[in-house]
Nucleic acid binder design. Structure first.
Length: 442
RNA sequence: GCGCUCGUAGCUCAAUGGAUAGAGCAACGGAUUUCUAAUCCGUAGGUUACAGGUUCGAGUCCUGUCGGGCGUGCCA
């Protein structure tokens, strides 16, 4: 989610016309699980008190039972799939329940996105394509692209042992069916040149096959370039894949709380009484959120990464905090020096580069374009994070060695103020492209 | 079994085929009467899993071996 958000911002800044669509899973087996849970394990009082909490408990409960490697687990899996199939075939009861559940689930998800500062142009979701699925399968059958296999319908591709299944033998549709419908819809509606899919690399085979199936489906037409922008798996501290499926929003939420309260504690110690408390909590929010977002983005997205509490919450070293700190230091100089930024920017005096730290900083400032380009080229926000770290690092060295307000003469002072201003603007812009906000004081 | 992918400093990670493989954390030693020490300066830490090959040049490309992860028709 955070990688996608950063890429949308970066690609837009670069000049691309970007449409973001959160392809949310609101029509799949997870609703079969919730339906089954609702029928068998519902706690009515809890549901009335908080539908969100109860539904998510039911989901986790059923999931856990299903994941058991026992006979009961397998049986339950079948029953869940039956609920899903009933929903897909238009069973009125399941449909009514589904309509009741979707807004509840959406609300939960929206709240998290809002907190993370993530916005989508569309959230069509899988259910949106549901009416298109049956005609799509019929069409592919008629054109001979798909055929019946062991009771199901699949598309067979050269060089692959397994077909792309688009209808189960119980009549329900699958991930690939929706994906194909999505391609058709998006071509018609948006005429994109490129479609980026941001998902876990474990879905690589699916996308490889699905892209080929899409090419068959659109044979003779102009197909947009389809790209799987894959990212690595989050591993636990033991190196084993993290189970994010069992209630991950809760985990993220408490992580955010912790990040903010840690930031607040440091803030209170540092700027304490000089500032108003409402200010501080907003500043802490930006710093805490920034730390989490940066931890996620600073990694090469294709590498697996080991989840570490301390790493996610770190505010020293190569972190968003470091950049925010550099920015705040510039702001502090400007405030103390009563600097009129507008007139500074308009003034024609050249920037002088005499000290080694000044030259190093200026050289780094010039590399911004390059950083953006490489982030765009490979869809990799970590190219931008490492640039920003480098830039902030050069600024810190400059800050230590080159007095600004107390510079020897006025022209040096003006020149250094300009360097400060350019640095602050570049950091602010760069962070904004990553979805991270700056703070005036910290 | 087959396919994909990864293996880089104690830990977490960088490095369009190009210079002496770089950061952060942890460790150790310094820096504050001077614009924010969430900082800076320095020390130590490497046979880039292993063995071959291609190349003027390989962490990066090819082959093999070992080890980890993932995937492998009716989940998404």
């Amino acid at each position: 989610t955070m990688i996608g958000n950063a890429l949308v911002r970066i690609l837009r800044f670069y000049g691309h016309d970007v449409i973001s669509d959160n392809h949310i899973g609101d029509w799949g087996t997870q609703f079969g699980m919730i339906l089954y849970g609702y029928r068998h394990f519902l706690d009515k009082n809890a549901y009335e008190a908080s539908p969100v909490a109860e539904l998510s408990r039911l989901y986790r409960h059923v999931r856990q039972l299903m994941d058991q490697p026992t006979e009961e687990g397998k049986q339950l899996g079948k029953l869940v799939l039956e609920e899903t199939a009933k929903l897909h075939s238009g069973d009125p009861e399941n449909l009514a329940l589904w309509k009741k559940f979707v807004p509840v689930c959406m609300e939960e998800i929206e709240r998290m996105y809002k907190r993370l500062g993530v916005e989508f142009d569309h959230t069509l979701g899988e259910s949106f394509y549901q009416p298109m699925l049956a005609p799509l399968v019929d069409d592919l059958l008629r054109r001979g692209i798909a055929r019946e296999t062991e009771g199901a319908i699949g598309i067979f591709l050269d060089g692959y042992e397994i077909p792309v299944l688009i209808r189960k033998k119980d009549g329900a549709f699958l991930y690939s069916t929706t994906d194909l419908a999505t391609v058709q819809y998006r071509i018609k509606e948006f005429q994109p040149d490129v479609m980026l899919y941001l998902t876990d690399f474990r879905q690589s085979l699916h996308f490889e096959q699905f892209f080929k199936a899409a090419a068959l489906m659109e044979a003779g037409q102009k197909l947009p370039e389809l790209v799987h922008v894959k990212f690595g798996t989050v591993l636990g501290e033991d190196g084993k894949p993290f189970k994010t499926r069992s209630g991950d929003t809760v985990g993220l939420e408490s992580l955010l709380d912790e990040a903010e309260s840690r930031a607040l504690a440091i803030l209170e110690k540092n700027v304490g009484e000089e500032s108003e408390s409402s200010d501080l909590s907003e500043t802490a929010r930006r710093i805490g959120l920034g730390a989490l977002v940066y931890a996620d983005l600073s990694q090469n997205r294709e590498s697996d990464y080991v989840f570490s509490f301390d790493k996610m919450l770190a505010m020293n070293g190569n972190t968003a905090t470091y950049m925010q700190y550099a920015y705040a230091r510039v702001r502090s100089i400007f405030t103390r020096g009563n600097v009129d930024v507008d007139s500074l920017r308009r003034s024609p005096e050249p920037v002088q580069l005499s000290a080694a730290q000044e030259r190093a900083l200026a050289m780094e400032l010039l590399k911004f374009d390059e950083a953006i380009e490489s982030a765009v080229r490979d869809y990799r926000p970590n190219q931008l994070t490492s640039y920003l770290y480098e830039l902030a690092n050069r600024y810190s060295a400059f800050f230590e060695h080159c007095p600004v307000l107390k510079a020897d003469d006025e022209s040096v002072k003006r020149s250094r103020l300009k360097l400060c201003d350019l640095t602050a603007r570049t950091i602010q812009l760069g962070l904004r492209l990553l979805g991270i906000e700056t703070v005036e004081r910290m």
